[in-house]
Design a binder for these strands. Structure first.
Length: 270
DNA sequence: CTTTAAACCTGGTCGC
DNA sequence: TGCGACCAGGTTTAAA
């Protein structure tokens, strides 16, 4: 279930268990993720200290001084803190070991990634060309307006383009457009400055709200199974096809854009 | 440069 | 109960 809020909540959950700890080993049970897990990764990592856990887009970056361990959860991945006595299950593909503590990656669909980058992590091919973080100052109505001037594609697909802004996945794309009152089929370049302001604001609001929903369970943060960020915000439109709009009661419509489902209210989003 | 479709995988659900 | 079709929260890649 990883969209940006889930990844951020996971980051906050794992960092206290990792920061300042020495890596004692790593176990790769299945190297066949989105890209092959690098050979000899355990040897590369052993003895290094995890300085901090950062996030860029939906990538988690474990700063190990001389390099970074890059983790991505794909569509079905999750991380949890457990210990070495816990037997690994079928989809537990990767363990990072820090003494008795284990950071364990579970990912049934194996769209996730475990990579190693020496030196400057932001120069990695996957991170190099990413657009601004939605919750930082680089993303604004002004920046959005400038970025989409020449885009004739539908705003729903453009807002999910990581060159425009990172971290807006399929759920929160629909939710943000609903909050901004913008029809997802609108050509991106047709949006004026004001609507870009509204959309940028909506993206920030929706993501912040979702992080807070996960963060609010921070107290009981580590679930009984050790996983993080187990939360479900109730959506305004996503997965609500045919159900009444929570604002105007007209039925939520589902369409397909760029091979993904989009949900919107035909009345509220003109 | 922009846009589109296919690809990587497994698992759950639905209709017959 | 079984089976096929279809769907799913991401992102790269190639091709148009």
């Amino acid at each position: 279930m990883p969209e940006l809020p889930e990844v951020e909540v996971t980051r906050r959950g794992i960092e206290p268990h990792l920061a300042g700890r020495i890596i004692t080993g790593a176990t790769v049970r299945n190297a066949g993720l989105r890209w092959p897990v690098p050979r000899g990764l355990g040897k590369t990592l052993t003895g290094l200290k995890v300085e901090s856990v950062k996030r860029r887009a939906k990538y988690l970056l474990l700063d190990c001084g001389s390099g970074h361990l890059i983790l991505h959860l794909g569509m079905s991945g999750s991380l949890r803190i457990t210990d070495y006595r816990e037997p690994a299950a079928y989809h537990d593909h990767f363990d990072l070991e820090l003494g008795a503590t284990v950071l364990r990656l579970t990912d049934p669909r194996r769209f996730g990634a475990v990579l190693w980058q020496r030196g400057a992590v932001l120069k990695h091919k996957l991170l190099r060309d990413l657009g601004p973080e939605p919750l930082e100052s680089g993303f604004s109505g002004e920046a959005l307006y400038a970025a989409i001037r020449k885009r004739g594609a539908a705003i729903k697909t453009v807002i999910m383009d990581s060159h425009v802004v990172v971290g807006v996945g399929n759920i929160y794309a629909s939710e943000s457009l609903f909050l901004a009152g913008i029809n997802p089929k609108t050509q991106a370049r047709r949006l004026g400055r004001k609507r870009c302001d509204e959309l940028a604001g909506a993206v920030r609001t929706v993501l912040t709200r979702a992080i807070r929903a996960g963060g609010s369970s921070l107290r009981n943060y580590v679930q009984s199974d050790g996983s993080f960020g187990c939360f479900q915000i109730d959506c305004s439109v996503y997965d609500r096809a045919g159900k009444p709009c929570r604002v105007c009661s007209s039925p939520i419509r589902q369409i397909v854009q760029g091979q993904r489902s989009t949900y919107y209210c035909t009345k509220c989003q003109s």
